[in-house]
């Protein structure tokens, strides 16, 4: 049967409409579930910087949310390290709602920087660590993560990294806990107080225990590792004003106590 052009066009239109409806329907129905999954995932990542990965995996969704509620408080600062209370539209600033990726597109001076504070249960003053989001480019697509600093604001308590499209088994390994564990105990400032950050090295299997600013690399994923290094360094730079301020506030606290 030789079909007329009119038939072909009608067929295509009908097919497009049906498939379009199907897709938008699926996305509408699953949308809330997906947003919940994303939200949970973000909180898990934030917690992942301070909580052992194994423990976190065993927690159920509502346990994670409850734990997050009890242990994390958050503020938003600008590049100068000053706290921002309200968003440009007048609503209160919520760190969890800040899209670090969107901010990344703006010049650094205009960005807002969320800080998540991990504290003792129910007591926001008993800080255990500061969790800073980081964001950058991997080999194929965006990568992001959270770096937790101990109260000396120098030693890394833990990190989590995530990615959108790094190669599974290679660059995607930045999400694995054994790669992330390599950052624990490393320091971001050198003796003179200059920011050195922590850099992943090329090659894998070497011992960097003695070096406070280097960690073992991922074999076959050097470009992703470079992306991680730039991301960590850049964001620690952006947060350095905040870190300075917090540090001096702390020492003045000590003075006040004396």
């Amino acid at each position: 049967m030789q079909q007329s052009n009119a038939y072909i066009i009608t067929f295509s239109i009908i097919l497009t409409v049906i498939l379009g409806l199907l897709l938008s329907g699926t996305s509408q129905v699953l949308g809330p579930l997906q947003r919940k999954a994303e939200e949970l995932d973000t909180r898990k990542q934030i917690l992942g910087a301070v909580v052992d990965g194994e423990t976190l995996r065993k927690m159920k969704a509502n346990e994670v949310l409850e734990y997050y509620q009890n242990r994390i408080s958050s503020i938003v600062v600008d590049i100068e390290g000053n706290k921002i209370e309200t968003a440009p539209d007048g609503s209160p600033m919520v760190a969890e709602k800040v899209n670090v990726g969107k901010n990344y597109k703006m010049p650094a001076e205009k960005r807002v920087f969320p800080v998540f504070i991990y504290h003792a249960e129910g007591n926001p003053d008993a800080v255990e660590s500061y969790i800073l989001p980081v964001y950058g480019a991997g080999l194929w697509d965006e990568i992001w993560g959270y770096v937790a600093l101990k109260t000396d604001l120098n030693t890394i308590a833990g990190v989590t990294f995530a990615h959108k499209g790094e190669t599974p088994g290679l660059g995607a390994r930045i999400t694995s806990s054994d790669v992330q564990a390599r950052y624990q105990g490393k320091e971001i400032f050198d003796e003179t107080g200059t920011l050195q950050a922590v850099a992943m090295q090329k090659g894998e299997g070497k011992d960097y225990d003695a070096d406070k600013h280097k960690v073992d690399g991922m074999s076959g994923a050097t470009i992703t590792a470079n992306g991680v290094n730039n991301m960590v360094k850049n964001y620690l730079q952006y947060y350095s004003a905040f870190l300075e301020k917090t540090k001096s506030a702390k020492s003045s606290d000590v003075v006040a106590l004396n």
């Binding site: 497009t16 699953l30 999400t175």
Partner: peptide, 27 residues
């Protein structure tokens, strides 16, 4: 068109119910 629709549906379902796997397999 049919294949692309089905694949998108699969990816949406994974995103809603198996977010970790969705992240890992992504592309």
């Amino acid at each position: 068109a049919v294949v692309a629709t089905l694949v998108t549906v699969v990816s949406e379902i994974l995103k809603a119910f198996a977010y970790d796997m969705y992240k890992e397999l992504s592309v």
